[in-house]
Design a protein around this nucleic acid. Structure first.
Lengths: 377, 377
DNA sequence: GATAGCTTCTGTACCGATACAGTAAGCCTC
DNA sequence: GAGGCTTACTGTATCGGTACAGAAGCTATC
């Protein structure tokens, strides 16, 4: 077989047993069973179910395995026979590289992996693309997957669905029957907007992604934007601003990036009658607003109040520090991990598993810092 | 079998074929083969080697598969039969959570995944621990692995070695026979130290991890610290400072964290005769030095020059911006990814693959900003 | 001293695919 | 119209394990 023929049997020569047993070719359970003089099943048990044989025999088996340079049951074969893989996938729309630049996403993945580690589950990052021959969402063995903010990326998601894998949707509306972990964005966003109202602001700017609206038009939360998250945040803001009857100027930005944010805030500040406060989709956007405003000679918060979102590290590095809505990333990660393991348990019909999809809301909280102040007179 | 018995066949009811074919139980290649009236092999080819059968038949097969709600060849079985998994592992010593808090590590993983995506390879994060029943390094199917700064974590590494997996060591000395991707730390560190010498500093502080030395003792690069990286950096610094005959005060910090860095710099500044410049293990440490120095009423760089390492985002957020040694994380990630794919190709004996382990050095470069200045008179 | 209940090991029957060689038919080519 | 290529499909032999139901021997129990 080509796949084994050329495997260089002598890499790392001194780091595994020296193969004194003289085993040629591939060492399998059977090789060891023959050497020790027991059945293959016993060798399997020696590795995977130690309580099924005497310690004495187990040690003889393990010693022989060591001598033959046998690393333990072949993971691929084990996965097939057991029907369980020990890995869960994480699907990302954005290129994985971009996702990791975002401290929010990175911290979330970290928390997920952290929570999963004790269970022995590894996390596989699934690029949503791939070659024709290899589509990770379709071809990687896994026990379940997290679908993370995959706006409209139905290709990869539908592979996961067809495989009937237990799925948890994070920061994104779940498909029917699947679990979800969502940020409870509305109350946080609402509190942020209320905070501005309390400070006397009567004209509020909104700088967000996912709404293709011309400047000056207040976004309608009912109207489907591309992003679930931005929709929720807008809904929260508007739930305070709308009833208050204040003026709202929304500017859509193409992407949650410094560049587009700068473009957006420039547009907004160039309006004949500009808002006195801006609610931003993210801390990154808010941070950019501070930069641009300063360039234009505006003082923050005296001339312009700015509110971010996420309470990411930049919120505290900003000058002045950002008023923002905190999301507890560790909690979100933990929730995602446990919801997924529970969904997996459910798919196996294990006792104690939930009997339907679960939906977790992770709380958000307004954090007031120096970037917001009373409306100018 | 327990593992299939309880799988709820009716999750996501409307998202895959409605199973009108009336197939009961598990749908496999054979099920479809029987329906269509062809051999199982033909169905396999329809999915995996489209050029092996007529388009007409292929479409009939695919349509039947769709109708039966068949998602495609079972990944686990495919992995076993093909001998290739489509995933590579990344082994981390630190808890995965901590690793992701570090923007350097996060950016590196991102770059790796990015580079790997077009090849269809997924990246599996392997926690170094796990339960007894499940040790990722031993039990997850993969084609190769990256070992990332796993100081002394021989447990998990030795599992990878025993499996004879193609391995690439990153930011860490490789084992014999394995490839490596290392930062070319010495020239960068040397340039940083030389920069301080050029500015007239005659007493330089070193704040790093991995050296258990009392304050005031210059670290000996030959002496093994725990961390390969800190050793290299110290070696680079000393290669300039040593010959210059200037005074060096080293303070060891327990961990690359704000807390320990603060403790370290306080110790250093409390010395009767304190250094006029500090070389730091990382930008995070340097950033902390700036904070603490400011608290103590020292001006930077007038009273104290500070040099960071990595050129991470904090270097530019710092006040003043940090003079630092830049490492090209994207390049490091790309190098790690391609070195690994080449090592995998080599293990398969593919044409064009290298015939031995490869060792890549990623260049570093001094970036001078505002945190360094002439030595005080 | 027969029954029951461990502990320890074994035999059989899968798990669900792919590789490779082979066969049969169709199409040229000279 | 025989030999040689293609194209399209099939049969057989794995890939390397695990689950589960025995079976054999040994110790308690009453």
């Amino acid at each position: 077989m080509t796949q084994t023929a050329a495997r260089p049997a002598d890499a790392y020569p001194d780091l595994y047993g020296s193969n004194e047993g003289g085993a040629v070719g591939r060492v399998t359970l059977q090789t060891i069973a023959d050497q020790v003089g027991v059945s293959r099943m016993t060798v399997s048990n020696a590795f995977s179910r130690p309580d099924q044989l005497s310690t004495e025999l187990r040690e003889r088996v393990l010693a022989t395995a060591e001598k033959l340079g046998y690393a333990g049951p072949d993971p691929a074969a084990r996965v097939l026979a057991r029907g369980t893989t020990g890995a869960v996938g994480v699907l990302l729309t954005e290129s994985v590289g971009t996702a990791f630049q975002d401290p929010i996403a990175a911290a979330f993945f970290g928390a997920v992996a952290e929570e999963l580690a004790p269970t022995g589950l590894a996390v596989a990052l699934l690029p949503s693309v791939g070659s024709a021959a290899m589509i990770p969402a379709r071809d990687i063995p896994m026990d379940g997957a997290l679908v993370y903010a995959c706006a409209g990326d139905l290709g990869a998601v539908s592979f996961l669905l067809r495989r009937r894998l237990p799925l948890v949707f994070v920061d994104q509306a779940p498909v029917e029957g699947a679990s979800s972990v969502l940020l409870d964005d509305r109350p946080g966003a609402r509190a942020a907007a209320q905070h501005l109202l309390d400070l006397g602001h009567r004209h509020v700017g909104i700088l967000t992604t996912g709404f293709g609206l011309p400047p000056g038009v207040a976004p309608d939360p009912a109207e489907a934007g591309t992003g679930y998250v931005s929709r929720e945040r807008v809904a929260g803001w508007m739930s305070a601003l709308g009833p208050a009857g204040v003026r709202v100027t929304a500017v859509n930005i193409t992407d949650n990036s410094e560049e587009y944010a700068a473009e957006g805030i420039r547009t907004m500040l160039a309006l004949p009658d500009r808002p006195t406060a801006v609610l931003c989709f993210s801390d990154l956007v808010a941070w950019t607003v501070e930069q641009v405003a300063r360039e234009q000679g505006l003082r923050i918060p005296e001339d312009l109040s700015v509110v971010g979102y996420d309470d990411s590290p930049v919120a505290r590095n900003a000058q002045p520090q950002l008023t923002t809505v905190r999301q507890d990333l560790a909690a979100k990660g933990r929730a995602a991990a446990t919801t997924l393991t529970r969904a997996i348990a459910r798919s196996r019909g294990e006792a104690g598993a939930p009997d339907g999809p679960e939906h977790v809301l992770v709380p958000t909280e307004l954090v007031v810092r120096g970037s917001t102040g009373p409306a100018p007179a």
